[in-house]
């Protein structure tokens, strides 16, 4: 059963076709990587899937709901309820501690719960760094806080934009291990990346070029 389905989606900025008649689907529980060079339309696709932008034409079904024509207020609700976001720059609120940053996500979603937030930090191995400010954490630690923040509300879809782009190899492996765990628990993962190694960790890789799906690669070695 597909969680996400794009049907003939185009996004046009003036003369530029950022996405050109793209169709694809992602099943529930699937781990998909999206690759492509700069300007291939990855970010535009990420914005549309993440309910932060609307396509010029086409349909986007997320969990059976067409999000291509919703108001931005409704999109905010959908994003909050169904999607966990992870960014390349591991954006954190810089004056809040690690645990507070996780709680911000709970705050907008439902109810802040410090105990649960601490458990989430424990899951990413940062239980004892919970009271540190972002400036006191390394890049890898910050990204792990962002993973904890993304999973705290149990989203159906985790959308990661170059999650390992600013990390060293050790931290990259920690983050990929976390993704593998989430995948095992049934969370759907879409990871936008440049890095073939990160793409190889996924079940399937979709390659974008000039706003179109150039090819799809099934990872034969997944899980091995």
């Amino acid at each position: 059963m597909s969680l996400l389905e794009l049907k003939n989606v185009s996004k046009i900025y003036g003369d530029l076709k950022a996405l050109d008649n793209v169709s694809l689907h992602v099943d529930q529980g699937e781990w998909v990587a999206i690759m492509g060079p700069s300007g291939s339309g990855k970010s535009t696709m990420m914005n549309i899937i993440g309910c932060m932008d609307k396509p010029t034409s086409g349909e986007v079904l997320l969990d059976g709901v067409d999000i291509s024509r919703e108001s931005s207020k409704k999109l905010t609700d959908i994003r909050r309820d169904k999607i966990g976001l992870i960014f390349q720059q591991f954006h954190m609120v810089n004056y809040l501690t690690a645990v507070e940053n996780v709680m911000v996500s709970q705050y907008y979603h439902s109810m802040p719960d410090e105990k649960e937030a601490l458990e989430a930090l424990g899951r990413v191995g940062l239980r004892e760094r919970a009271r540190h400010l972002p400036s006191q954490l390394s890049g890898g630690e910050q990204q792990r806080v962002c993973v904890a923040r993304a999973l705290i509300n149990h989203p159906e879809l985790i959308l990661a934009d170059e999650p390992t782009g600013n990390l060293d190899e050790a931290n990259e492996n920690i983050v990929l291990d976390l993704f593998a765990q989430l995948h095992k628990e049934g969370t759907t993962l879409i990871v936008v990346t440049h890095d073939p190694e990160v793409a190889d960790a996924a079940q399937r890789t979709i390659v974008l070029e000039h706003g179109k799906v150039a090819r799809e690669v099934i990872n034969e070695n997944f899980g091995k």
């Binding site: 609700d77 994003r79 309820d81 609120v93 996500s105 979603h109």
Partner: peptide, 16 residues
């Protein structure tokens, strides 16, 4: 700006 964008991306409504 970035923090506000982040909050909105995390699901903050305009009224929040």
């Amino acid at each position: 700006r970035r923090e506000i964008g982040l909050r909105k991306a995390l699901g903050a409504s305009d009224s929040s």
